[in-house]
């Protein structure tokens, strides 16, 4: 992790009618950091993430992702980020190879590059023999890893993971987080939302959203100390109960 800020958010707002989905949030993420984005359903996580990935234009406030403005430079942002969603993001009726070719093509990689990447990726995942298997026929853990690797295909400097481990068994989750660590170690910034409080502990820093606002922000240790809690679950309960805001 460096001190270079790769995501900067200042007083970002998103208002739907009279509903403040994201209400004046400010934070920044450093290059190579694993940044956890937590909150209950409807707390505004997804809306915030959509604004950062260029899917949604903010109502007001400032934000830059990899130095690009979220209002005007969404196309540039899209080229520099990777995205993997909680819902499965590869095509089940295409083979492993075809999915890699498709996403390589979508991100404008040259055929030669795609070929090399595919070879490297399949080797790393130990999936050389499954290159022509349909995604649907693979075990969930494999799919997950593959989806992550495909999202990394174009070497994004930031990768957004929207509840990537939803519905996955603990062992696979553990393996998945190992991949995340490795990726962060190589300098890619990880922006991850999750429901699982134990996963929050794996992050370098986390922010907790409640009703569109950031209720707490800091490293897991800082938060636990601040709330006098044993684990992240208790932190979360503390925030929910007291509505306490810790910065």
């Amino acid at each position: 992790m460096t001190n270079e800020k790769i995501i900067e958010v200042e007083q970002l707002m998103k208002i739907f009618g009279s509903f403040h989905a994201v209400d004046d949030i400010s934070f920044d993420v450093k290059r190579g950091e694993i940044f956890g984005f937590l909150g209950a359903n409807g707390a505004g996580k997804t809306t915030a993430m959509k604004m950062l990935t260029g899917l949604l234009s903010p109502t007001s406030g400032k934000a830059t992702v990899a130095g690009f403005d979220v209002y005007k430079e969404t196309e540039k942002i899209k080229k520099t980020i990777g995205y993997m969603s909680q819902k499965f993001s590869l095509y089940g009726d295409l083979t492993v190879k075809e999915n890699i070719q498709l996403f390589g093509g979508i991100y404008g990689l040259k055929n030669k590059v795609i070929k090399a990447k595919m070879h490297e990726l399949l080797g790393r995942l130990g999936m050389e023999n499954s290159a022509n298997a349909l995604i649907d026929s693979l075990p969930l853990g494999w799919k997950q890893k593959l989806a992550f690797s495909v999202a990394m295909l174009h070497d994004p400097s930031i990768i957004f993971l929207d509840e990537p481990t939803g519905g996955v068994d603990p062992v696979t989750r553990r393996q998945f987080w190992e991949m995340i660590y490795e990726t962060a170690h190589n300098g890619t910034t990880i922006f991850v939302t999750t429901h699982y409080m134990d996963e929050a502990e794996y992050c370098d820093r986390i922010s907790m959203m409640v009703d569109g606002k950031i209720a707490a922000l800091g490293s897991p240790d800082e938060l636990k100390k601040g709330f006098n809690a044993q684990n992240m679950d208790e932190v979360f309960v503390g925030i929910a109960r007291e509505g306490k805001v810790l910065k």
Binding site: T53, G54, L55, E75, K78, K79, I81, Y83, M84, S85, Q86, K87, F88, S89, L90, Y91, G92, F103, I106, Y107, G108, A151, F160, D162
Partner: peptide
């Protein structure tokens, strides 16, 4: 429904 639309929309494809 499958969620792949989001992935496509976050890609550089318009």
């Amino acid at each position: 429904e499958l969620g792949t639309m989001e992935v496509l929309l976050t890609s550089p494809m318009r």
